[in-house]
Design a protein around this nucleic acid. Structure first.
Lengths: 233, 233
DNA sequence: TATCAGATGATGGTATGACCTTTAATATTG
DNA sequence: CAATATTAAAGGTCATACCATCATCTGATA
């Protein structure tokens, strides 16, 4: 055996029990847990152990404790889960490049899906994101806000929450790189123009075009970024 | 302000401080933390609060506490992080479908990348996975083990750890669905044959073919699954 | 009777201090 | 010098106490 004597801490055991109950549906979102003191009595452990377990699960976003009220099972989504720990990853250069590749993959597919649905119900918001970016650029800014809004809204139009969540994860991991990518463009207007083209492809339902435009859009920034990085040596 | 009075628990504050230090590199993997008692004294809080913070980080896989020795920063990878979270997600049907879509996306790209490198250094392992699957099928089994080995090895050949990690996350979330997909095939040999074709495309460096074969491979199982689900009503 | 303000108790949040087991460093002994 | 015994230190667990907050009940008031 490679893992012979896994000394299992008390709180881990407790966490596992709760996780099982959540997984099997025995505990559903919104359910109220017994009080810490009751749990301690039931499991025949100290309140300390119970608290360490509950606090851990709270930090992971599984439960929610309210003073004077009690502890409740939280509604869980992939999104919230990824959220809670994206901030810790030490992103090395290698990870950055790989994440960019994943992001490219996801965004291209998102553009295609959005086009397949003709942007149904999201055209207005997409147009607004473009005008926001226009305003920003006119004021001499990079247009970051409008840029973010565009990509976020497009993801919503694609109607796949899992992709949106994973994209969000990528973006958080790439937070610093993202802004750099926009800065690396010779002219912010290029990005803006590309957004307009993508929007037209989406509106027109041209799946292939939307996908290849998005790929081009991201690869432009991507290539600029790599090039810039190399020339700065 | 929408979030005016965020009552921040003590242990959260402590966790955040540590996370910042990890993110900025002030704390590197392998570093030893001060003892719980020292931390309590330094931060002027009780050992209870310190412990709740440390236990939470431990459960998330950020640190590692050894009795009699101390607490150390752990080597972090996207992989390990995703691991610790995947087990809790309550996967509803919608999530399953979306995850399948993400998985399709990732696997197709993985096949393409593997082909682009001609499977460099992984051909032997891929062939072995195929013969494993052959053996399994010959014995009347589904060939699950060989199937897993093939996809895992292909991911390695693609040489993008982030994709592998995310694929792993998808698979964990789809654990039950995955076996069902294999079962849904009219004949296990179909999956085996598709693996062979993919391997040939990879070996030959035919990027497009590898991608479309993989897409077809997964869509076959996927469609069968959906169909099966519907006819079972 | 209906309403609302205050009292009350339950609950999570925090702090202490104690004791145990395990580990690692040190001292002891052959 | 090596093996062993000792000891100090670290995390693991427990019991208890007190606080701030929230939900609920109660009773006075309109």
């Amino acid at each position: 055996m490679l893992e012979p004597l896994m000394k299992t801490r008390l709180y881990e055991n407790i966490v596992n029990q709760f996780m099982d109950m959540i997984r099997t549906g025995e505990l559903k979102p919104g359910d109220k847990l017994p009080t810490e003191r009751e749990l301690a009595a039931q499991l025949n452990v100290s309140r300390t152990a119970i608290r360490e377990a509950l606090r851990s699960m709270e930090l992971m976003g599984l439960i929610d404790s309210k003073v004077g009220s009690g502890t409740y099972i939280r509604e869980m989504t992939l999104d919230k889960l990824l959220d809670s720990f994206a901030s810790v990853l030490t992103t090395n250069d290698r990870m950055n490049i790989e994440m960019l590749e994943v992001r490219l993959l996801l965004e291209v597919e998102i553009a295609r899906r959005a086009a397949r649905k003709n942007g149904e119900g999201h055209i207005a918001a997409l147009e607004k994101s473009i005008s926001i970016m226009e305003d920003e650029i006119r004021k001499g800014k990079l247009g970051l806000e409008g840029d973010n809004a565009f990509h976020t809204e497009l993801a919503k139009a694609a109607d796949n929450l899992a992709m949106i969540s994973l994209l969000g994860l990528c973006d958080e991991l790439l937070a610093s790189t993202r802004k750099a990518a926009l800065k690396a463009l010779p002219d912010p207007k290029i990005g803006l123009m590309q957004h307009r083209e993508i929007l037209e492809a989406v509106r027109g339902g041209d799946v292939e075009k939307a996908g290849s435009l998005m790929r081009n859009h991201l690869e432009t920034a991507y290539v600029n970024l790599e090039h810039k990085g190399k020339t700065e040596n």
